[in-house]
């Protein structure tokens, strides 16, 4: 038996994204943000997107390109502190922003990827994060119902992958990538190194290739992947 080859061209994978889609994008700051897939989505042009991402990168980087091109109508996120442009779009009503507590965003995505309808947590009770959420009592204590999140497409950045789509991450580039790689109907991964079957040891796999639909090797890393000079 031989595992299927899911290696692809980035443009043909990104072409599957439709206007109005929900798109999860990995990354926390620069590490783990799939800069090349994002640029391909800008080139592709699908608009009215809902983007689910921890943060909005910085002006002129990462998903800020999608904000600049007007392709985003809604952003589900945790923190925009490093992107004044995103905050300005939010404050002027040009994008709708839903803030989540960071670990709750992670759990909602994990639940979506695990086939679970929601998770229960007491995080945010007594604050405006609880407004509008269903409350249930567990063991005598109130918990908020945090509904699972899934997406039409997830864009993932891996350090190494094999052609079946088994993925491995490095350092703090892991963050939301392994969670989002389980939570979308179509999962597209870019990888710094693409290996033949067997090239990534079974014990080194972080995301099992079963979750991944398309994997593409990056020819080169653009400047956006580099250390930010502040």
């Amino acid at each position: 038996m031989r595992l299927p080859d899911k290696s692809c061209k980035i443009a043909s994978a990104i072409a599957k994204i439709k206007p109005g889609d929900r798109v999860m994008i990995g990354g926390f700051g620069v590490p783990g943000t799939p800069m090349t897939l994002i640029q391909a989505l800008v080139d592709h042009g699908a608009d009215n997107l809902t983007i689910i991402k921890n943060d909005a990168n910085e002006p002129g980087m990462g998903i800020d390109h999608l904000l600049q091109s007007g392709q985003v109508s809604r952003l589900i996120t945790t923190h925009l502190g490093l992107n004044t442009h995103a905050i300005s779009l939010m404050n002027t009503g040009q994008i709708e922003v839903e803030f989540n507590a960071q670990g709750i965003l992670a759990e909602r995505i994990r639940a979506g990827g695990a086939g679970i309808g929601a998770v229960l947590s007491d995080i945010g009770i007594g604050t405006e994060l609880a407004v509008g959420k269903q409350v249930v009592e567990i063991a005598g204590k109130p918990h908020l119902v945090e509904t699972a999140l899934r997406a039409d497409v997830a864009l993932i950045h891996a350090d190494r992958a094999d052609i079946f789509g088994n993925l491995a991450y490095v350092a703090t580039a892991q963050n939301f990538n392994p969670l989002m790689a389980m939570a979308a109907d179509c999962v597209i991964a870019e990888t710094e190194t693409l290996l033949p079957l067997g090239g990534l040891a079974a014990n080194a796999v972080h995301t099992a290739g079963v979750f991944v639909d398309h994997v593409a090797e990056l020819a080169e890393l653009s400047k956006e992947y580099a250390v930010v000079q502040r």
Binding site: P31, Q102, A106, S121
Partner: peptide
């Protein structure tokens, strides 16, 4: 380039450092 803290500063490892995903990170917190 792949190693920052939550504030975006570039940091280093020490002997015994560990990396994990965001769900695991907040599992530790909660």
């Amino acid at each position: 380039r792949n190693l920052i803290d939550a504030g975006g500063s570039y940091v280093s490892t020490v002997p015994g450092s560990a990396f994990f995903d965001s769900a695991t990170s907040f599992a530790m917190v909660r």
